[in-house]
Simulated scan of single mutants.
Amino acid sequence: MAKRIDVNNLNVYYGNFLAVEDISLAIEPRSVTAFIGPSGCGKSTFLRTLNRMHEVIPGARVEGEVLMDGINLYDSGVDPVAVRRHVGMVFQRPNPFPTMSIAENVLAGVKLNNKRMSRGDADDLVEGSLRGANLWDEVKDRLDKPGSSLSGGQQQRLCIARAIAIKPDVLLMDEPCSALDPISTLAIEDLIQELKNDYTIVIVTHNMQQAARVSDRTAFFNIAGTGKPGKLIEMNDTPVMFSTPSEKATEDYISGRFG
């Protein structure tokens, strides 16, 4: 578990439109990396290139490399479905499958990958994944109830349990707390701190305090104007980024002068 990611000269296109330009950065294993920046600057687009999720949009393509422990995820022989088994994703809004029970939601990704297992192994995986998402004690007596019956914060932790059930190496989170109340947000942030012991985590957030609280390193993205590509402005250890950033644009954004 927990892989290093190296991105080299990555450009992301939708048709002829250059959405993200010339990104090079390193993401350390067993750490939390936060992507910050104003809306529309390519943070989420770039995040989705790390498990090839952007490819579900027609015309999407990349130039450059995304290396996971030295293996280019965009080599011609690499199956994008296999990439997503190693690089899980949690989306902005909790999205449990409404017709599935809590237990079935946890196992959904495993079954999608055609993995057969005994009832005992399935039960163990459900419990282990829910414990990993700090949700087991809250739902262990109602595993047959719909996932959609849970609160918003519980649903998001259920989605995290579903993501870690497939035993990924990397976990991507696209604004995982934006739809949650402060108490649920705190629970997710505490969970992220625990999960980084086993996973490489990358999180997109618009919440500067959240980035400062949960991340080890922070990358600031910006855009020169409408129709221009998003760019990585700078990246550094989070305490340095929030105290002495190198670029004035970073300081302006973190201090709330724009964005």
Rank of each mutant, 00 (worst) to 15 (best):
D6Y: 07
D6M: 11
N8E: 14
F17V: 15
A19M: 08
E21D: 15
I23F: 10
S24V: 10
A26G: 09
I27L: 09
R30L: 12
T33C: 10
F35I: 02
G37D: 03
G37P: 05
P38D: 08
P38W: 12
P38M: 10
K43F: 11
T45S: 12
E55H: 03
V56L: 14
G59K: 10
R61T: 06
E65Q: 15
G70V: 07
L73Y: 10
G77E: 14
P80Q: 11
A82L: 14
V87Q: 07
V90T: 07
R93T: 12
P94E: 06
N95I: 03
M100L: 15
I102N: 02
A108R: 07
G109W: 04
R119T: 01
G120P: 01
D124C: 00
D124K: 12
V126G: 01
G128M: 08
L135F: 05
D137Y: 04
V139T: 04
K140I: 01
R142N: 01
R142E: 00
S148C: 01
S149A: 11
G153C: 07
Q156N: 05
R157M: 09
I160Q: 05
R162D: 02
I164A: 03
A165D: 00
A165K: 01
L171V: 13
L172E: 11
D174K: 01
D174Q: 03
E175G: 08
C177I: 14
C177M: 14
A179N: 08
I183R: 09
L186C: 03
L186P: 00
L191T: 06
L191F: 03
Q193E: 14
L195M: 06
N197K: 15
D198R: 11
Y199V: 05
T200L: 05
V202H: 06
M208A: 11
Q210Y: 04
D216T: 10
D216F: 11
T218G: 10
T218H: 10
A219N: 05
G225M: 11
T226S: 08
T226F: 09
E234M: 06
P239Q: 04
F242L: 00
P245I: 01
